[in-house]
Design a protein around this nucleic acid. Structure first.
Lengths: 403, 403
DNA sequence: TTCATTTATTCGAAGTCCGAACTTTATTCT
DNA sequence: AGAATAAAGTTCGGACTTCGAATAAATGAA
């Protein structure tokens, strides 16, 4: 039940009815496939006749295909319907500070190609190279049609202009990626923050997400970013920057962050924070000249490896990180009370160690009425890339914006 | 664009179209009244004929009334339409720990009666007394019809069961208020958290809210509670407890809160916190036996009066409160990036002193891309009661839940 | 008086769902 | 073998809704 925005609404016509019902049908097939028209009638509550007509149209539009014929104890056998995964392809792009990954996907988020390239420091050079790789990919993997390009970024996309804003780890200033890539590739381009993309990925293709409509995704790398889905809908805020809980102070006078604030959650619980903790634990006593700049920085992946080998210093650094990860997640659970909270990032590799500390912090700091399920998303599941596919396809599967 | 929840969806029929369009019409009249059918055609994009039919039906249903006839330089004069504020009445109830306020309202949130009663400590006694007062109010203010009773509470309402959960300041345990009051009064009852009610009030009847669809309300009394509207929709989370940012730690090892956590925002920035700061500033040196329990507590309203008189100790206590109010609001602005953030509570009486400190904290702790407008809501505007009216009426004015 | 202009209503066409009747296909009982 | 039962799927008229053109109503200007 949302308020009608009189600056941007859509009146309903007779076709609106068909639009709504055929999306419901499409989703019912997605969830229950293979499924007969008769069962669709029972799930949807629509008349048999209506189901037949809509199914016929969805088949004509290549969304659905008729498959095998089922068996019943008596009566005419049902013809099963299922999604046509090859109706259209999607190009997914996951931009990360060091490398950018590209994938070709079908409607099932199954990747038929996966490749990567370095992320250029120069924005216009990056745009040129990426466009080129995309057109090459399309040529190498011909399909009836491509639905679009979805791009996940460690930054926020301004609502309205769809320009990239606030992307400190990339070092690019405010930037229009959409227009040039659309021009070069000839496909519609959708941009989205990586945490938002992960949230979409879990909502649309995650396990055990039936009936979940409040979901939070936390991406932990050298920064921390949060994606929120509330009432089944991505929350982007007024400008697009909603979700920057990584820049909320956990310790009011903590270490200075590049955002200008101090004690930011991401200064305390990101991969970079763990690297700092590890370095500090070996540093010369405080006050020694140049103690910080002299320290050799051990990359986070090495710290994880050391943790897996049982190294005490690495475990201590990880524990410090996990402690603050827990307090921050407790903030999200207390404040947002989602059904599910997904943690994404390399740190999930050692979730057997980190998970219990997070759970403990949430239990201690959040009261009992929030029943959030906290789950790690392994990077092998490619949450960002799956999110880009959801990003491109959601307009066909989600409820039409009405009123 | 929200994901269709296959556990709870609604197929569309022909009547759905009319439903959508007549709600759009109703909202257009609400915003632009008085307005002619011809102008409604232009604003809505519907055909003249369709507008006429829908207007006729809305008039027949007593939502709209025909009013004066307009003047134009040439041509037939338009008949203006406007809302019929007396179509139905609403009973609004604002429960606060000490007193409960009741109001009779029409559709415009204009109160024709306003009275209050003490809030009984015993829940069942409270229910009995409140029901009695409501039936008396209805008898004393007869109307064609009452649409329902809206109740604002300092607690959270469980989604689904609609029971009151987590209401520490009231001291009632988990409780079903809805069923007995509906039985006694014969009217449908809607319950909502006070902060959520304030958020609804501002969204539906606040000034300068055209096009706002992301709004946060912060109620500051002896506790702090947050109500969130995102994408034009109240965010209640999976269980109904979303918004308890008041119980997020601002200082990880701060004073112990009754919720079990420590350093909760409401321990640092609520009215009760200011009372504590004031008392502490006069206390005997730390370590003295019984120093805390011996202190005379000065009520918050007295502190405000002292501040208005320029008392230095009171100002210091208020500043401490304002400082933490600022850091907490910075958290909300950074994390949620709403268009508007409303502050509700007695503290708005001295907003000329508190507002700048909050603005300063937000500026320092939140980056520039969030453009949240932070505004105080004076208690004379009765945000909680206006919210209860919105709560009851929103089902007629908001977009129907489709798919 | 006549014409231009604007508001508002009327009415048939088209799109959609509903619901009953019908067709198709298969199994079970006599 | 034939009839009865059962279930899946189709067909078609009725009802509701919007659209769009035509019409009616009202008013000022020529």
């Amino acid at each position: 039940m949302h308020k009608i925005n009189l600056n941007k609404f859509q009146v309903a016509t007779n076709e609106t009815v068909r639009d709504i019902n055929s999306r419901i049908m499409l989703n019912l097939v997605r969830r229950h496939q293979p499924i007969s028209r008769a069962d669709l009638m029972r799930y949807s509550g629509l008349q048999r006749s209506t189901v037949s007509v809509i199914a016929g149209q969805l088949i004509a539009d290549r969304w659905l295909k008729e498959g095998a014929v089922g068996n019943l104890p008596r009566g005419r056998r049902p013809t099963f319907l299922h999604l046509n995964p090859d109706r259209c392809g999607v190009i997914g792009v996951d931009v990360q500070p060091a490398r950018t990954t590209l994938a070709v996907s079908n409607m099932d988020s199954q990747f038929s190609a996966l490749e990567s390239m370095p992320t250029a420091r120069d924005a216009s050079e990056f745009i040129a190279r990426l466009s080129h790789r995309i057109t090459d990919l399309i040529r190498a993997h011909p399909r009836k049609s491509y639905e679009g390009v979805g791009i996940s970024l460690p930054g926020r996309i301004e609502v309205g202009s769809e320009r990239l804003i606030f992307a400190p780890t990339l070092g690019w200033s405010e930037l229009d990626l959409k227009t040039p890539i659309e021009r070069e590739t000839g496909l519609p381009v959708k941009l989205e923050n990586a945490a938002n993309a992960c949230a979409l990925a879990e909502l649309w293709s995650g396990q055990h997400m039936d009936g979940v409509s409040n979901l939070v995704a936390v991406t932990v790398s050298d920064d921390i970013s949060v994606g929120m889905i509330m009432n089944g809908q991505l929350v982007r805020g007024s400008t697009g920057v909603a979700g920057e809980f990584g820049h909320v102070s956990q310790v009011l006078d903590g270490p200075k962050c590049r955002c200008g604030n101090s004690g930011c959650w991401e200064m305390l619980a990101s991969n970079a924070a763990a690297v700092r903790y590890y370095a500090e634990s070996a540093s010369v006593p405080k006050g020694a000249i140049g103690s910080k700049s002299d320290m050799a920085t051990v990359p986070f992946s090495d710290i994880l490896r050391l943790v897996e080998q049982g190294d005490a210093r690495a475990c201590k650094a990880l524990n410090q990180m996990a402690h603050y990860l827990g307090t921050g997640i407790a903030m999200l659970v207390t404040g947002l009370a989602p059904d599910v909270l997904i943690v994404v990032g390399e740190v999930t590799r050692v979730w057997d160690k980190v998970g219990p500390m997070v759970a403990e912090a949430v239990k201690r700091r959040s009261f009992t009425h929030a029943v959030t399920r906290i789950v790690p998303a392994g990077s092998e599941a490619q949450p960002r890339l799956r999110g880009t596919v959801a990003l491109v396809l959601q307009k066909h599967f989600s409820a039409p914006s009405v009123a």
